[in-house]
Design a protein around this nucleic acid. Structure first.
Length: 648
RNA sequence: GGGCCCGUAGCUCAGUUGGAUAGAGCGUCUGGCUUCGAACCAGCAGGCCGGGGGUUCGAGUCCCUCCGGGCCCGCCA
């Protein structure tokens, strides 16, 4: 509704200026500095000051006198150096909200592809991976809430060097057969086992340089896809992918399709992309210099104009393709530009019946929905890979796909590091140098980091203690559910409260907090709103028919109280909040909105006892406000992927 | 050497395309539970927005420069 009035205002003011002043300027709306100034501020007078050669204040006064009538707007006032502050007709506005009038969502055409998570399937997921997945998943929920069609992809690099390292560990260090590893892989914490093995193998390379040859050979065999080492690679990667899906499901994160590198190789996606790249002269064969014998992309494609820079090798002199090359092929496929497709088989069915599919190289009986063919592609990848993402986009552009290059968005974010305090707490040894830093980078290679499942377990444990102390009589199973919901709320909110380009110095104390700006704080507000209606029912009272009691005049009477009006206004801005968060590409903005909404409600809850209110109109109004807040809180939390517990 | 990011209250962070008196949370201190359950609320204190220059009627926000910190720049992935 807020948006509707904004649009009306822009339209009316634009026409007014055109007709009365013969000026054509874009009408900009602002949020007044203070809520008491009104709902919308128009700074038009400042823009006109130059053109009309008059002081802004005088222009504002003149404009205010002739200001056109706009439905739903009560009046305009002059303020400050020349602002026109607009006040809504409160009764009109609230009546529209009560009638269920909402801002229309964008029905933009085309599918959006969001790729996130993308964890190397060779070890347990850690806190950094969680940031990626939660950011990606929340962005997906934002897009869907806005009416967009979204496909969630989780790319699996199952033939890469990281998997090879773990295979080396099993085969050369532990001398295990595929059958033995298969047994191990069926154990619950196989990903933890590999976490340690990966670190051990990496360390082994350091002290035994000749072992690096094992790795090279293993990688080669895994890519070819045949032999015992390749079998080991599959066992490891497939099992770990399942563990990752389990971990993410604990946070409510699901996927539509898992494209895999093994299929990119076997289905010769790269060969097809290579032909295109050669044909359209996007890459060239280098005959001299250090890159002699390689196919390279000229630096001018992916750097600032004028900066020739270094060329990027796409195909090595031994004929093998680099990681970026495969990524270009994958990106082409996402847009439906490759002229090839994977085959698919169902990987798992979620509780809702939703199926996650995985790429295969041979057809399967189950009919898969169409994947790929996106109109817009978001790659959720940390900022350290921005150079490579630039190369991928440059590849598209060099192939003549300028439109798709524009629609290829690197949804980048900064890494999660560990606070020194948390390192100490976890018993991670720090060098003299690390101790001085404000944070320490995690390293899978060194086995240095906080495992996702450990963190979730810890959060559940703490939430459970809180729930037990408050609701000792509630059934055990119920308390377990509530504790899990609170833990997930705390974790997801924690990862979302920072803007994307802030490095998170992960501090376990801070993440375990349930007070202040946290997920549980917001959940608590929603629970309180629900409790009021539960108590009402327990008293044998039915929820009133709001529309019957609250006509426009009644609403106007109640909303004459400034506090009520400000609360309602804030709650009514969920739509615009989502829209601006999408525009900015910032899930954290939705989190922040949820928090301020919860703050508003908590103060309302504290100041106005609803159930004991004796005046019928006021009580109905308070109940309506409660209900309105409850719905906005629930909607916003759903976008954040946070559930509302039965009680807290 | 080149590129990207960051520097705002004791700590952790917000701050829309430049706008009115720079905001939260935590922490400190002070008050508030007679169940719509305090995982809450109210209040106090705390700021040369890293330094300097510029553009502008107006700069935390844009430009230049310097200082401090992080990340990237491979025929690894």
């Amino acid at each position: 509704m807020f948006h509707i009035l904004e649009k009306r205002l822009i339209e009316a003011v634009g026409r007014f200026l055109r007709e009365s002043r013969q000026v054509e300027i874009p009408v900009v709306l602002e949020q007044p500095r203070q809520a008491a100034f009104g709902e919308i501020a128009l700074p038009v007078a400042f823009g006109l000051a130059k053109q009309l050669r008059q002081p802004p204040r005088a222009i504002a006064e003149a404009l205010a006198k002739e200001f056109p009538a706009v439905e739903g707007i009560e009046k305009v006032e002059i303020a400050g150096g020349g602002y026109l502050n607009v006040r809504f007709d409160r009764g009109y506005y609230a009546a529209a909200l009560l009638a269920g009038l909402t801002d229309a969502t964008n029905e933009a055409a085309g599918k959006v592809i969001v790729e996130h998570t993308n964890i190397n399937p060779n070890k347990a997921a850690h806190i950094g991976h969680l940031r990626n997945a939660v950011l990606g998943d929340t962005f997906v929920r934002m897009l869907r809430a806005n009416g967009r069609k979204v496909e969630v992809q989780n790319y699996i690099d199952n033939t890469g060097v990281q998997v090879a390292d773990v295979v080396v560990g099993f085969h050369y260090l532990e001398k295990k057969t595929p059958a033995e590893v298969r047994n191990l892989a069926a154990q619950p914490k196989f990903d933890y086992y590999c976490w340690d093995l990966y670190a051990r193998t990496s360390a082994y390379y350091g002290s035994n340089p000749e072992a690096v040859e094992w790795r090279r050979n293993t990688l080669h065999v895994i890519e070819a896809g045949e032999g015992e080492l390749a079998e080991l690679g599959h066992i490891v990667a497939d099992a770990i992918v399942e563990r990752h899906l389990d971990t993410m499901l604990r946070l409510g994160i699901e996927y539509d399709v898992l494209p895999r590198e093994s299929e990119i190789l076997h289905l010769r996606f790269w060969a097809t992309a290579f032909e295109q790249l050669k044909e359209r002269k996007a890459i060239y064969f280098e005959n001299e210099g250090k890159n002699s014998g390689c196919w390279v992309m000229a630096g001018s494609h992916f750097r600032e104009a004028g900066d020739e820079g270094e060329a990027k090798v796409i195909v090595r002199s031994n004929g093998t393709v680099t990681y970026v090359g495969k990524d270009i092929a994958y990106q082409l496929w996402k847009f439906g530009l490759l002229g090839k497709d994977f085959h698919y088989k169902p990987l798992r069915t979620y509780q809702s019946g939703h199926v996650a599919w995985v790429a295969t190289d041979e057809p399967c009986d189950a009919p898969a929905p169409p994947f790929g063919q996106g109109g817009e592609v978001y790659n959720v990848i940390d900022s350290r890979q921005s150079y490579l993402q630039d190369v991928v986009v440059a590849g598209l552009r060099a192939l003549g796909y300028a439109a798709q290059a524009e629609k290829s968005i690197h949804f980048s974010y900064e890494m999660v590091a560990l606070s020194p305090r948390t390192c100490a707490e976890l018993g991670i040894p720090l060098s003299e140098e690390d101790r001085k830093k404000s944070y320490v980078e995690v390293s899978g290679r060194k086995g240095l980091g906080v495992k996702a499942d450990d963190l979730i377990d810890k959060l559940i444990e703490k939430a459970r203690a809180e729930v037990d102390s408050r609701h000792p009589d509630a059934p055990e199973a119920e308390r377990a559910v509530v504790a899990r919901q609170i833990a997930v709320g705390a974790l997801r909110y924690f990862l979302l409260k920072f803007t994307r380009n802030t490095v998170i110095a992960f501090d376990i104390q801070e993440a375990l907090s349930f007070e202040g700006e946290t997920g549980p704080y917001v959940q608590y507000a929603a629970v309180r709103a629900r409790n009021i209606f539960r108590k009402l029912a327990e008293r044998g009272e039915a929820a009133p028919d709001f529309a019957a009691v609250l006509d426009r005049d009644a609403l106007r009477r109640q909303l004459a109280a400034e506090e009520f009006w400000q609360l309602l206004l804030a709650a009514s801005k969920a739509g615009p909040a989502l829209e601006s968060a999408l525009k900015a590409g910032e899930p954290s903005h939705v989190g922040r909105y949820a928090f301020t909404l919860a703050q508003s409600f908590n103060s309302f809850y504290h100041d106005y006892p609803v159930l004991t209110e004796s005046n019928r109109e006021k009580k109905t109004f308070l109940l309506w406000m409660t209900d309105y807040f409850r719905r906005r809180l629930e909607e916003t939390l759903a976008i954040l992927g946070i559930e509302v517990p039965e009680y807290m």
